[in-house]
């Protein structure tokens, strides 16, 4: 034990399990929390406990939600014929921020990765198939533009192609604000492939 208090040691240990937090940062957080009023810390603790008590997955789109179906799936003003497939709930948050997309989502819960042993049955693929009733006309594949996201998109194309739906993939290429001369070959060739007629 490095601290004179076993409780402090335990808090540091638990916090350092969080992504991007090492022992040093965990220690800083613990000493910060010790100086805060007890009431503030209670609110934080309750917020963390509520995560598991109240938050669940939407039984339709597998986004995180407190009501089932989630507010997106139960919104009658959204375009029911359009489903955007993403890897994680974070991606829904990012896409919703744009305010551009008015359809529904489907959260796979990750991406296919052979070395990590993540195959199609570890993701919500079958659940996507069951959603594809007559009213869905287009599926937008918005998986990440990396090897795992590409593999997932390729798999979904094979799985969905026989269903004769419109299948689209979000454009990949040069990010806004970047310089073409510094882009790598893969990014550039994707950008040329995905060019649009003006």
């Amino acid at each position: 034990m490095r601290y004179s208090s076993e409780t402090v040691e335990r808090a540091v240990h638990e916090l350092s399990k969080l992504p991007g937090i090492g022992r040093k940062s965990a220690q800083r957080l613990v000493f910060f929390l010790l100086k805060r009023p007890a009431e503030d810390v209670k609110i934080l603790a309750q917020a963390l406990l509520d995560l598991h008590e109240k938050v669940k997955y939407c039984s339709i789109c597998y986004n995180i939600t407190e009501q089932d179906p989630c507010h997106i799936c139960s919104d009658v003003h959204r375009d029911q014929s359009l489903i955007c497939v993403v890897e994680e709930a974070n991606d829904v948050v990012a896409l919703e921020k744009t305010g551009e997309f008015k359809g529904l989502y489907h959260v796979l819960g990750g991406a296919m990765s052979p070395l990590d042993g993540i195959g199609p049955d570890n993701l919500k693929m079958r659940e996507l198939l069951t959603r594809l009733t007559g009213q869905v006309h287009e599926i937008i594949l918005a998986t990440n533009p990396n090897t795992e996201g590409e593999a997932t998109a390729l798999y979904l194309v094979k799985l969905l192609r026989p269903l004769e739906l419109k299948l689209t993939r979000i454009a990949r290429g040069i990010p806004i604000g970047a310089d073409i001369e510094y882009a790598d070959e893969i990014t550039l060739s994707r950008a040329i492939e995905g060019r649009v007629t003006l």
């Binding site: 296919m112 052979p114 070395l115 990590d116 195959g119 199609p120 049955d121 693929m125 798999y155 799985l159």
Partner: peptide, 14 residues
């Protein structure tokens, strides 16, 4: 090997 299991899975589901 995860990659072998993965290969079997994508083959059997497609």
């Amino acid at each position: 090997l995860n990659s072998i299991i993965y290969l079997d899975k994508i083959q059997s589901t497609l």
